[in-house]
Amino acid sequence: MSYHWNWSVFLAQVPSGGTTYLGWMLSGLATTLALSLSAWLIALAVGSLMGVLRTVPGRWLSGIAALYVELFRNIPLLVQLFIWYFVLPEILPTGIGNAYKAINPMLQQFTAAMICLGLFTGARVCEQVRSGIDSLPRGQKYAGLALGFSLPQTYRHVLLPMAFRIIVPPLTSEFLNIFKNSAVASTIGLLELAAEGRQLVDYTAQPYESFIAVTLTFMMLNALVMVLMHRVEGRTRVPGYIGGGS
């Protein structure tokens, strides 16, 4: 027995015509990028807001944020995605559920995956933002308040700029994670990169070419993001911490 290598498979026409297998992979890559970036925007916005709420004195506000984090952090992404896509439309009022199910299926899959991935990652971003703020010496907050800043002003001008700089490395990590986690969206039928790879295996019976192509594409994507974030990290490093300064 031997494996029949065939790298030219990517240039072959797909059975339904109109494009090549490479075309499929590229359109999968485009979906992966669109999904990851839009989910990241949701994650950053929701995560930052909730992260700030977790550190403010009001019990109610921090309680809401804590509930959000616990709920979204303690259920596997795979299960959450399934709940967003399959379960939620069934438990919503019938009218709304049916209206959602009536839109284009691709769009349904994409929005479910985007919201799911965004809120899932947002919970993690929230914890990073909170730990960033908590890691600052308490004196910074008091200094801000003593200077006559209001609490929101203290956050805006003193705490957040410092906290965000400290949490750039873990945020980079979450940013990278979102690309990889987007592969989970293939489980509800969204044709992103991993799903197109799987499709190629099913259609051509050439698993290794497909696995290698998908793996390498993710690695390149990752390298690109890392180079980018490395620059950001370099610029935002706080002098005086190990690894910082210089």
Binding site: K180, A183, N222
Partner: peptide
Amino acid sequence: VNLFRSIPLVM
């Protein structure tokens, strides 16, 4: 570290 962090766990 970069290698393993750049590939989805599923892969």
